[in-house]
Nucleic acid binder design. Sequence first.
DNA 1: GCATGCAGCACTGCA
DNA 2: TGCTGCATGC
Length: 788
Amino acid sequence: MTSSNFLARAPPAVQTDSLLAKLNEPQAAAVSSPAKPILVLAGAGSGKTRVLVHRVAWLIARENVSPLSIIAVTFTNKAAAEMRGRIESLLRLPGNALWIGTFHGLAHRLLRLHWQEARLPQTFQILDSDDQLRLIKKVIKALELDDTRWVPKDIQYFINAQKDEGRRPKALGDDGDPTRRTMIRVYQAYEDACQKNGVIDFAELLLRSFETLRDFPPLLEHYQRRFRHVLVDEFQDTNAIQYQWVRLLAGRDSMPFVVGDDDQSIYGWRGARVENIQRYQRDYPGTTVFRLEQNYRSTATILNAANALIANNSERMGKTLWTDGERGEPIRVYAAFNERDEAAFIVERIHEWRRLGGRLQDCAILYRSNAQSRALEEAFIQTVPKIPYKVYGGQRFFERAEIKDALAYLRLLSNRRDDGSFERVVNLPTRGIGAKSLDLVRDTAKAQGLSMWEASATAITAGSLGPKGGASLHAFLALIERLGRETAGLALHEIVDKVISNSGLIDHFRKEKGERGEGRIENLEELVSAARGFQHEDAEEGMSELDSFLAHAVLESGEGQAGEWEDCVQMMTLHTAKGLEFPLVFMCGLEDGLFPHQRSINDIGGLEEERRLAYVGVTRAMRRLYVTYAEQRRLHGVDQFGTPSRFIAEIPPELIEEVRPRVQVSRSLYSGANTAGSSARDGWGTRETYGGHGDRWGGGDRRSSASSPGGYTRPSAPTTSAPRQSAAMIEPDNGTGLKLGQRVRHGRFGDGVVLRIDGNGQGAQVEVNFERAGRKVLMAAYANLQPI
DNA sequence: GCATGCAGCACTGCA
DNA sequence: TGCTGCATGC
């Protein structure tokens, strides 16, 4: 080393310390590892992002790696943005110096750069899953298949699954199975349609960019030489094609740095392969594995619960989280009577949290499915003072119908051949172009291999449409052409503004009755501001600002727009919560059938994935964790009776404190009663007679068959028999022949539903909610209840 | 061609 | 419960 070089840098030892100073030993070892394939198994809360960010910093600042030769891949835009921000602040580098992005985002970038090699039109657009489904329906129709037998959703799943595995229709064999043969035929026809329209779906982004690299050696070589360092986050969630993509890009001499946690693999149902972690170690012999097990997030109690829970899974790589922090509070479990009681309980706890100075944004309510949010939202609105909240997920901004309508106009401006967009807006607002005219246009398009746009023009010229339809269609084409001319050279937001007003969309929604239309107009206006705030980065890639905006609209669901930082409770599904942390967490709806989800309950793989989801949930909590379930739940308008989730029973009882109802409460909390919402303030206690009775948790012998976390033996694969512990907990063999939720008939009171069984045998008390007579507590010995 | 009403169905979710 | 898609009637 020459002296000038030496002088150019500060003394290495000091600087090295400064980058590694705040890291623990395995973190520092991973960050500063010499270049070779690395796998970091990072437990929840163990500083995974920190390691990734520091690794990048290390490479640049210590190994003299050019930022241009680093590519970092994440799964969500949020994660990518966070990583980018942290690298920027750590290194004071402009964020776009290195390639950081989601798999889809980076694949998209490659395709934009190399659209010719990828055999795509330069203006290709991306279909979201709705668009995809729409197109598949069209294809099914065009093939004259019966869409009750060939369910579009199933076909969509089939196609995406094939693409996720990297399989093209031509490479698929039908194994002599005619069903499969047809599926493949639809797949092929769908691909043709995409190609013709110049659109690609999400899975195609990955597959196409993979194939493009693979099939153009000079291109591949270029990127392999460029990206010496490939970093991948959430590696356990990669699917087959993503894995191949990484392998291809990394090439033979590159040293991938991948971070993952097999215990947090929760996307198996959409093609993620946990096995990729093992496979990585096989494909890259000499991989160094670092385990991050020290947790900086949660209390020891929470971690112990998480460890015990996940220990029930087989085939783990094995990791045990630990902390040198405090033991913390017990996990509180609350058995709610119904979902409204559950919500009332949560509301009360949040009031309490707030009274004691807690911030709302530190509270998260996690649930298995989005449908559960409604009862909670109602409770937040009704309580005094109101609790502000934000629901994440659900309907996303760019997926709203009115937004997609506006985008369809914009897409059509950019690409007249986009048939999907054409069909979406050709008669929206209605302008007298009916099914008949469109059928004719479609036929023309099909027969002559034209786009809908071209076919329209042809049909108009040929005069094959009726005078009215022809004129209307002509007016539509003229409208688009005029918009195209008038928007030329305008700023993006001006284009959007002009299009939504001149297309008639605003007027159309204004006519819509009530608040709904107003909301839609507000959303359209929001789209204009989104356009105003849009930063066009792809100028060098020869893409118009509009095209770039449209592409990003699909790739970004539009989270994080208005009202970002009001202090409010965070509500989201367990899936959405991955990667986040909150001081106070409520996991609610822990009932068998809801969580674990009914779909997964009979299959060991599915059940284990649900358990990992529970693990993810528990490990979101930093200080305080509540777990709730409802004995009765109204979902999709039907009452269901649940038993507590088996996952509750898998948490060691010594870590749990059961919250008992304290206050008597009006009957309005009971589902089915009509006096809505009057009692949220009464507290969360629900039942007059229910509260006192003992062992909802099965008392001392509850875990006799289970045992402590250490000596726990897994049950064999669940069969059709009742779940291991919950059965004992909530449906003891009570000798009455009755069980909760069962419908029964009584001589005098008529038909009803069993709400509660106290005690055993003929001495048992049974509470029944009769349809006509209301709730009654009866002695099993005398009531003579007949199951019906 | 368009509005209205009814039947069917909903399940986790990120690009 | 609430949305979507289809069928019916004007």
